[in-house]
Design a protein around this nucleic acid. Structure first.
Lengths: 333, 333
DNA sequence: TTTCTTGTTGCAACCGATTACATCTCGGCG
DNA sequence: CGCCGAGATGTAATCGGTTGCAACAAGAAA
């Protein structure tokens, strides 16, 4: 009993043809006569032959897989983008290789950009070094982006999104509108802070020249922001706040409520992302909705187009966002 | 100017040695003399040589990657398990290939179990066919499992977990305790329903012989369950309910509240999973906490041990769960 | 009948690294 | 002085498909 997996030469021997013909039956059936094809297919079935991908990839100089570099896999936000990516890659015959940039060394990350590892790269982490990512395999940036990296970006219009939040709060009569930014240095933090500041300025409202940075985008960071806000003079502190993430907004609300204040009576809150469940907290959170799955899908499609050599891999792509008004915002009392 | 990537023979030529020596410098430096090693390393640096993984994999008959078969990538629950998996695989030198079983055909899924594609398989989807997964590469099942598939399982004790919920509600004085199960046929749904029924029976409480199946584990399914519950006779319907997921519990609470009832005054609710944010809804949800990241980590470690040929890839592994008491449960009025 | 297509198929050279085996050198030892 | 062993390095087969090119057959055109 042969324990080894059958190889193409085994099939060829049984079918009485050359390995070339077997190979053609597999990858280019039209080139082989009907009779031969049937014989070979029978031999394939009989032996239970399965193609060796490593061998094919070596010869074809491709891998059939796309790497996604994710800053934090456990963040549901990224999971949904990945889901969008996978939904495009799978049907197109590509594998999705996921690398958590936090649990991988710089050397390993470099390795992911190797043509012998992946055919393309989707970067979801804006904190990576631009050098090393470029010039090896086609790259697309999604959601976040790496400053200085020449690769198409599929993202939302963060400035416009911030402006939406500001407009909503201003329309409700708020004049002292604050913004709690994400972690310092993060491209999204900066873009959203900048967008908020500019929107405030455009309306003649007071705006900060320095962002109120949080440690990260987490619940705890929102809680910390609440502590700062609670300490401030009620006569001067913002009556409305926009946050760089829903999680932060949640943390803020929880902490504020714990101190006996009420949202939106004492302070209006706008989140960012529209993650699941956010509609079910108390009060349901007003937020900016990002098209997460679409972001992933479009990034993947963009990359595939690039691999086919079709696309103008130059232009960026801005997806629309949407203000979802729930109950965490109210007119200024 | 050579556009091609340098290969090992280019390095060899420049260093004035054979390809064998270059190969040794890369993968077995101790075998090469100090001088030669330095020369070769200089040549590698000079050419910017990078190893071709496809070639090495072909020769080594391994791929360096592990596939995770996930039923639904956009579900944050799985994202956190994946995170645990990635945190182990990365440092061990393995890639994580993620396949969404929903957006892949059966043929593609079979392909993932090919030795030429992956060195091992982590199954997170209990609805896959057992045939085709077995006997090709080492497999570990995590969280969910495939009935009939002979592969070690890393999971929680679903029966014990259900019993925890029942005990909690019974201790609060509830006698009519219900359970809303996940989708019919899902291994977790069945296990949790069975565990709940047995726990009820053991306490002499009325128990259903048929599960109250939901369409899936989602918020909407919980909402639908609420509609059913609201229609039932208040004198007979359960005064407390446990759910097969937090999302369902949330949906239920939201719908019940919309009808002017209050949780936990009118009905106590226990969720399952302890996903993020669940502590911030109103009321904060009492639930069963699953060690998600640990599940992923252990599954990955198990698989790696199997790949090294170390482990008794036979025994299953049960992780402990924990009852987290918050405010959605209260003594029977 | 000869020549030219068109369609099938086989031969053998790849893809790029790894490694068993052979070879060579040099020091130690009888 | 010759033999042996250890260490370093080269030679070439190998992993398993793919594909350019050649060969060949059969039918069409001349």
């Amino acid at each position: 009993m042969k324990q080894d997996r059958p190889k193409i030469s085994d099939v060829a021997r049984i079918a009485g043809v050359s390995t070339a013909t077997v190979s053609r039956v597999i990858s280019n059936p039209g080139m082989v006569s009907e009779d031969t094809r049937a014989t070979v297919q029978a031999a394939i079935a009989q032996t239970g032959y399965r193609l060796n991908h490593a061998a094919r990839n070596l010869r074809h100089q491709r891998t059939g897989s796309i790497v996604a570099l994710v800053p934090n896999l456990s963040n549901p936000f990224f999971a949904q983008i990945l889901s969008g990516i996978a939904s495009v890659l799978g049907p197109a015959g590509y594998n999705l290789l996921v690398a958590d940039t936090h649990s991988a060394s710089a050397e390993m990350l470099l390795d992911y950009a190797e043509p012998s590892r992946a055919d393309g790269l989707i970067v979801l982490d804006g904190a990576l070094p631009a050098a090393g990512l470029s010039g090896r395999v086609p790259v697309v940036q999604a959601c976040e982006w790496v400053p200085g990296l020449q690769a198409p970006r599929v993202k939302i219009d963060n400035a416009a999104a911030s402006a939406l939040a500001v407009a909503h709060l201003a329309d409700l009569g708020h004049r002292r509108i604050g913004h709690v930014a994400g972690p310092r240095g993060n491209v999204l933090s900066e873009a959203r802070f900048k967008g908020t500041a500019e929107a405030l300025q455009a309306r003649g409202l007071p705006y900060p020249d320095q962002a109120d940075y949080a440690a990260d985008f987490s619940l705890d960071a929102g809680r910390a922001a609440a502590s700062r806000w609670l300490l401030a003079d009620p006569g001067y502190r913002p009556t409305a706040l926009s946050f760089a993430s829903d999680a932060m907004a949640c943390g803020f609300i929880g902490e504020v409520q714990r101190h006996g204040l009420s949202v939106p009576r004492d302070v209006s809150v706008v989140g960012f992302d529209d993650i699941e469940l956010i509609a079910h907290i108390s009060p349901p959170l007003t937020t900016i909705r990002q098209p997460r799955a679409a972001l992933g899908r479009l990034a993947a499609e963009r990359l595939l187009a690039g691999l086919r050599g079709e696309a103008d891999m130059g232009a960026d792509m801005l997806l629309p966002v949407e203000l979802v008004i729930r109950a965490s915002t109210a007119p200024l009392a």
